[in-house]
Amino acid sequence: MAVSRRLVALAVAERLATVTGLVGYFGQIGRPLPGLEATTPTDPPTKSDRDRRVRPYAVLYPGAGTPGSETSLAECDDDLDAPFTVTVAAGDAEDLLAAIDRVHAALHRWAPGRLDRDGTPFTAGPLRVPPGYDPGPLRQDRDVQPVRLFLPLAYQLTAHT
Rank of each mutant, 00 (worst) to 15 (best):
M1D: 14
V3Y: 11
R5Y: 06
R5L: 08
R6E: 14
L7P: 02
V8Q: 11
V8F: 12
V8P: 07
V8K: 14
A9V: 10
A9S: 15
A9D: 07
A11N: 04
A13W: 06
E14Q: 12
E14H: 14
E14I: 00
R15L: 11
L16S: 06
T18H: 09
T18S: 13
V19C: 10
V19A: 04
V19S: 15
T20L: 14
L22Y: 08
V23Q: 07
V23I: 15
G24V: 10
Y25A: 08
Q28S: 07
Q28T: 09
I29R: 00
G30Q: 05
G30M: 12
P32S: 06
L33N: 10
P34N: 01
P34H: 09
G35D: 11
G35W: 11
L36I: 02
E37C: 09
A38F: 13
T39V: 15
T39W: 02
T39D: 05
P41C: 02
T42N: 04
T42D: 13
P44C: 02
T46R: 11
T46N: 13
S48Y: 13
S48E: 15
D49Y: 11
V54M: 03
P56M: 08
A58N: 06
A58K: 02
A58E: 04
V59W: 05
L60K: 04
G63K: 07
G65T: 04
G68P: 00
S69W: 10
T71H: 07
S72P: 06
L73F: 06
E75W: 11
C76M: 13
D78S: 05
D78I: 04
D79P: 05
D79M: 11
D79S: 05
A82L: 15
A82S: 14
P83A: 02
P83G: 11
F84T: 08
F84S: 09
F84D: 04
F84H: 10
T85F: 02
T85I: 11
V86K: 04
V86M: 12
T87V: 10
V88S: 01
A89P: 12
A89E: 03
A89D: 02
A90L: 08
E94S: 04
E94L: 13
D95L: 14
D95V: 04
L96P: 09
L97V: 10
L97S: 04
A98W: 01
D101Q: 11
D101F: 14
R102V: 01
H104D: 15
H104E: 13
A105Y: 11
A105S: 15
L107T: 09
H108D: 15
G113D: 07
D116K: 03
D118K: 05
G119S: 12
G119V: 07
T120L: 13
T120F: 07
P121T: 14
P121R: 05
F122L: 13
A124P: 01
G125W: 15
G125Q: 02
P126W: 05
V129G: 02
P131G: 03
G132W: 06
G132E: 10
Y133S: 03
Y133M: 07
Y133P: 00
D134Y: 08
P135Y: 01
R139F: 06
R139W: 00
Q140P: 00
D141M: 03
D141N: 06
V147A: 04
F150P: 03
L153R: 01
L153T: 00
L153E: 08
L153Y: 00
Y155H: 08
Q156S: 09
Q156G: 05
T158F: 00
T158D: 01
T158P: 00
T158K: 04
A159G: 00
